[in-house]
């Protein structure tokens, strides 16, 4: 029996469902908590609606990108486990690395012709094992991290928004500088995405249309990727 028949069997979908259900449960739980807190804090319902709409729109493109990355996993570990892994801890990059290491542990490689039942089973063990690190650190440390934020702000509440923007710029400068150094289409996509986003946000403020902000990431992403693809 081909191991992919096991990997794509209905029972496998059932086995992968509990992990995904935890993610969905947390999403709904935290959504309720933040909605209620928002209401009690007197945040305008219209503001909340705009945030939710923008989040939903902005999730579509990046999720499709995950689906593309998932294809490499599906052919090796089957659709249900790929779905579970990409909805759960980690990211496409992490899952590909861990799946490949799992395969190396049994003497093959991800996507190699001899990636068989044993390598599949190794992936089932190693991918969740490797992701435990985030879960353990998350469960043990997260509630202790607030002090870092307060320490960095030196007790100055007014600095917290600047701090958050600076941290965000730091993260995306790290990601972005990699794209700039990569050259070719990746550099072009980064620059076009950047320029489009600034243009859309400026335009939204100039003509006072918030819906443009809600679509800004989606549009900037599409223009960036297609312009880059047209030239490279």
């Amino acid at each position: 029996m081909d191991y992919l028949e096991i990997a794509n069997s209905p029972v496998m979908w059932v086995c992968c469902a509990p992990g995904v259900i935890i993610v969905l449960f947390e999403a709904i739980k935290f959504m309720r908590l933040s909605r209620k807190a928002g209401k009690d804090m007197g945040i305008d319902p219209e503001v909340i609606t705009r945030g939710v709409r923008a989040a939903a729109i902005s999730s579509i493109g990046p999720s499709l990108a995950i689906v593309i990355g998932m294809l490499a996993l599906i052919v090796c570990i089957g659709a249900p486990f790929a779905w579970f892994r990409l909805s759960f801890v980690g990211s496409v990059m992490y899952e590909l690395i861990a799946a490949n290491f799992a395969a190396m542990g049994v003497g093959t490689e991800l996507g190699a012709p001899d990636f068989g039942p044993l390598a599949f089973s190794a992936a089932l063990w190693v991918m969740p094992l490797g992701a435990l690190g985030w879960m353990i650190v998350g469960a043990a440390l997260t509630h202790k991290l607030e002090f870092i934020r307060l320490k960095l702000a030196g007790g100055k509440i007014a600095f917290l928004p600047v701090l958050t923007s600076a941290a965000m710029l730091g993260v995306f400068a790290k990601m972005g500088s990699g794209e700039l150094i990569a050259g070719g289409g990746r550099t072009i996509a980064f620059i076009i995405g950047l320029v489009c986003m600034i243009a859309f946000l400026r335009l939204a403020d100039a003509i006072n249309k918030t819906w443009i902000k809600e679509w800004s990431l989606g549009f900037s992403m599409l223009i960036g990727m297609f312009v880059a693809a047209a030239f490279f």
């Binding site: 990108a65 600047v162 600076a166 990746r186 980064f190 950047l194 400026r202």
Partner: peptide
């Protein structure tokens, strides 16, 4: 399909741009 190779750099650029105009 080729354009999908450039999704991530475009997203990174857009979000960097969003915060760039703040400072």
């Amino acid at each position: 399909l080729h354009a999908f190779d450039y999704i991530l750099p475009a997203i990174f650029g857009a979000i960097f741009g969003q915060f760039l105009i703040k400072g």
